[in-house]
Design a protein around this nucleic acid. Structure first.
Lengths: 201, 201, 201, 201
DNA sequence: AATGAATGAGTGTTCATTCAT
DNA sequence: GATGAATGAACACTCATTCAT
């Protein structure tokens, strides 16, 4: 049975107390209202700091957004490496991936929402959700190894990845939007199993 | 075999020529640069009309965006009703849905991109992709009828919908981002079949 | 005797009434408080226009300053060409140049002040007063022709120019600063004569 | 023959090392970029000191600028008193003044530039170059004594002063702007002689 | 003496919207 | 219908200055 490991959280050290308040307030607001609709004055109010403090710690609004995104991606990758990559079988990996994402959504919806929507698309040029390049790469690696091992049937790896990450993302989206009323943990088993049916050799 | 029907296009009457120029310029820009990064002066330049003309035809920038969105949803629904709903079996419906979305993406990527990213999230409050409420509703109806008919196994309908729309959306996303280099038409068969494996009774 | 010609003034056509109000208010303030100490809100107040109006007519504060400078230089050159260049003898030219600058100072001190202090130095990189490159060029041409004609003794042309423009500028400066209390017109004769003593062959 | 005395330099006591670093960094930057375009952070970087240190030694940015200006004026006066005032004849004085200013320009262009351009105009309200009031006073004194002694012809003292300081300042300006390519020392003789021709009885 | 995090008023600029023509 | 000059609130960002350490 898959160990339900504790999720990796905040790596950023405390000490810089203000910096943290700014980070969290901005993250909350960016998710809630979007990057462009969140003004610096909004963050000032939400974080209870001065305008100058924000620019003391971050060189621009954009850098602040990038920093938040980077943190989200790093957390995702740390969790993925620890809980998913370490699994032996491909099925176990898919199960662990589903578990990771669903539990994370329940535990820190703001962070996951940032991963999904607060994506750099709005800010930068490229976009790619669920953890951008790195997230995509992680899923593909899983798929390709599964194919090599003969556990997943031969198919276009993009399609296989899309079935996995598309399904998970869509479930999370429906949950965050309140269209799924039960905690996602209840769906881990079913989601993983059905994805597996689509992929297994 | 599934008939590859022609896609429903522009329903909006030619009527006022200027209004059309504004609509199309705005749509292009909203997709390209995002709603917030597109200014009225941008649209003025792109469409080659005056500021006043925009406000003559649309009461605000937001209404313009909403209008574009509404059109996209209407086109989606028209196509869905004609090509998907009319299918007999659930498998045929899934196959037709996949075909519709993949072919549409190749044919009018701007419009599909608008459906996926230019979503009201940025503009309004609620979001819900692939055609918002209506799109979701369409997929769910398909799933629920399939379950009643015993073609789809008993499962949470949200999960079933997520597998379908999540996979399709993710494929489209990868294609629009240039990570899939072949036309999506090549994947219709495989995508539909694999989705079916996850759902069939 | 030297004809005391009328000074060339405002070439800029009316019509764009607001643009003119902005131009004049900015010119007044730039001279009075300097470019950097004059804020856009200052100009807004002084000109009685809106912020937007300024940016509708000038692309930036810097461009506004450049426009004012350009106008001053053009007026200078127009007057110089008409009143100084047309003189036959070098002495007559020096006399006319002195007359031009002293009368102009009395008539439009703001403009002359702008020529002297409001120079691009503060704004741009290069500086060179009394009409920048063009003004310098004009004086040098006068000097070199005088030397060729044997009217001015052989000497470094920069030195000769410096004697002319340095003396005139310094007189104007003292007048604008209130250290000379009589109108400069009273000094035309004496200034021109003494400069001439320093230069004549 | 006029003795080419050594120029009086830094009178300010070494005292606090940091204060000196701040002074010099600020002077360099004020000349290079102008007072307003030089920020405290700029000085912090250039001097390699902390913000606090600047405010420990100077009560404000303005006071720092004033201090630098005062030092320049003091150096000018010290040099003037020693090298110019001590001369017997008015011609010798003019010769010595020219020599002082031209050699100083070559030796410490930053300081001289500060005297010419970094003038308080930008900072305070009044301006008056070449050493402000004191500098003007020094030149006038020279002129008035020369007239009393019958060495300079009777003329308006302001005009006489303007011929001297205007010519010197303009030469320095042309040199600092790179329009005179030879060291100013080469022009001492000629400049003094020609100024003298304009003034002598 | 020295530091540098924190402040917040102020800057130049943008832009959705209005309205006289 | 159509124009584009005009508006002014709002924005991201800067920077002289303060003050706890």
């Amino acid at each position: 049975m898959v160990r339900e490991t504790v999720l990796k959280a905040e790596k950023r050290q405390a000490g810089t107390e203000l910096k943290d308040k700014i980070f969290k307030a901005a993250q909350r607001l960016f998710v809630e209202k979007g990057y462009h609709s969140t003004s610096i004055p909004d963050i000032v109010k939400e974080a209870g700091v001065s305008t100058g403090a924000i620019y003391h710690h971050y060189s621009s609004k954009e850098e602040l957004a990038r920093e938040i995104h980077k943190t989200a991606v790093q957390q995702f990758l740390a969790n993925f490496n620890e809980q998913v990559r370490t699994q032996k079988s491909t099925y176990a990996k898919i199960r662990a991936y589903t578990s990771l994402m669903f539990r994370w959504t329940e535990q820190d919806p703001v962070m996951v929402q940032y991963l999904l929507y607060g994506r750099p698309k709005e800010i930068l040029v490229r976009n790619l959700t669920v953890c951008s390049e790195e997230g995509l790469q992680a899923t593909r690696e899983m798929v390709e190894q599964g194919m090599e091992a003969g556990e997943i049937k031969t198919m276009n790896p993009c399609l296989a990845s899309a079935i996995i990450s598309g399904t998970l993302m869509r479930m999370i989206e429906l949950r965050l939007d309140g269209l799924i009323e039960h905690p996602l943990e209840e769906f881990i088993e079913a989601a993983a199993n059905n994805i597996w049916l689509a992929l297994k050799a």
